[in-house]
């Protein structure tokens, strides 16, 4: 039985259908990612699953049954935007949240897991972005939850802090907890998630394991030159198509693609050859980039 079963969720705000028929299942112990650009409906979906927001229609089953009052005690939540009360230290904030739950994780474990040892007496307002996210993760874990929701946990962090945070989430996964996270970083999803759902405008447009999705949609490599490098932009080399501002060929035979370009006397200074990423997948599926829109 899946840990979480989500069927046909719909949520409308005045003027916008934020969630438009979303459904998926999450297996116990897995990490499930909701992937999509800003405004796609990730936060709204997550908040419905957290029990913070009610859906207009649809069902959510936890361990096969509708959620009841005890649900709140077995999930851990890290919001995209969270404020903590003023004038408290990291340690006091953890103690406060721990006191709300019947089941608590030993403070020392939590501190070690989230790497908070040196910050315990620091005022929560004096934390850096990465430190703050670690505290918020620890707060999400105070009750030793079975299911953890993380809404864009690394947005706004520098690359170094982001990688550090990934390591913490790996640690949480290794403890066998089920993780449901949202992100608009494709790399994050490929590193952390066992399964992803790509969301755009409130709908799931593709679902599956990241590597399987890539293999399914793309050959091994992408060969890319800017359109401006073509002598005659109206005339694409065979096998190439326009995507964004580039001429792109998805191919298993890189030599042949290069030969095509040379034949048309395309300048190769800005040639790029890459393995496809989830960014490319998103562009292919929706026709627009992840960071735009």
């Amino acid at each position: 039985m899946p840990l979480l079963q989500v069927e046909n969720l719909v949520k409308t705000y005045p003027g916008v259908r934020a969630v438009d028929g979303i459904g998926f299942t999450v297996a116990e112990g897995s990490c499930f990612g909701l992937l999509g650009p800003n405004g796609a409906g990730k936060t709204t979906t997550l908040e419905i699953l957290e029990g913070i927001t009610g859906a207009d229609s649809g069902h959510v089953l936890y361990r096969g049954a509708p959620r009841d009052d005890s649900y709140r005690a077995v999930v851990g939540i890290q919001f995209q935007h969270t404020a903590l009360q003023d004038f408290q230290t990291v340690h006091e904030a953890l103690r406060l949240f721990a006191s709300f739950y019947p089941r608590q994780r030993p403070m020392s474990e939590l501190v070690q897991l989230c790497n908070l040892g040196e910050l315990l007496d620091r005022d929560t307002r004096a934390l850096s972005g990465g430190q703050r996210q670690r505290l918020l993760l620890a707060i999400a874990l105070v009750n030793d939850p079975d299911l953890v929701f993380l809404d864009e946990p690394t947005t706004g962090l520098d690359p170094q802090s982001r990688r550090n945070f990934w390591r913490l989430i790996e640690g949480v996964k290794q403890e066998g907890k089920t993780v449901l996270l949202t992100t608009h970083y494709m790399e994050e999803a490929s590193v952390l998630c066992d399964e992803i759902a790509v969301i755009d405008r409130g709908r799931i447009i593709e679902r599956g394991a990241p590597q399987r999705l890539l293999a399914q949609h793309f050959p091994r490599a992408l060969v890319r030159v800017p359109l401006s490098a073509l002598p005659d932009p109206g005339r694409l080399p065979p096998g190439f198509e326009v995507r964004g501002g580039d001429a792109v060929a998805a191919t298993d035979d890189i030599d042949q693609a290069l030969a095509q370009l040379r034949q048309l006397q395309v300048a190769l200074d800005e040639l790029a050859i890459s393995t496809p990423t989830l960014d490319d997948l998103f562009l292919k599926l929706t026709g627009h980039g992840l960071r735009e829109s």
């Binding site: 957290e50 913070i52 009052d69 709140r72 969270t82 404020a83 903590l84 709300f100």
Partner: peptide
């Protein structure tokens, strides 16, 4: 103030 800055939202997500 708590409601506006999101402190209440965070508390609401707990069994409190």
């Amino acid at each position: 103030r708590y409601r506006k800055n999101g402190v209440l939202r965070r508390l609401r997500a707990t069994p409190l």
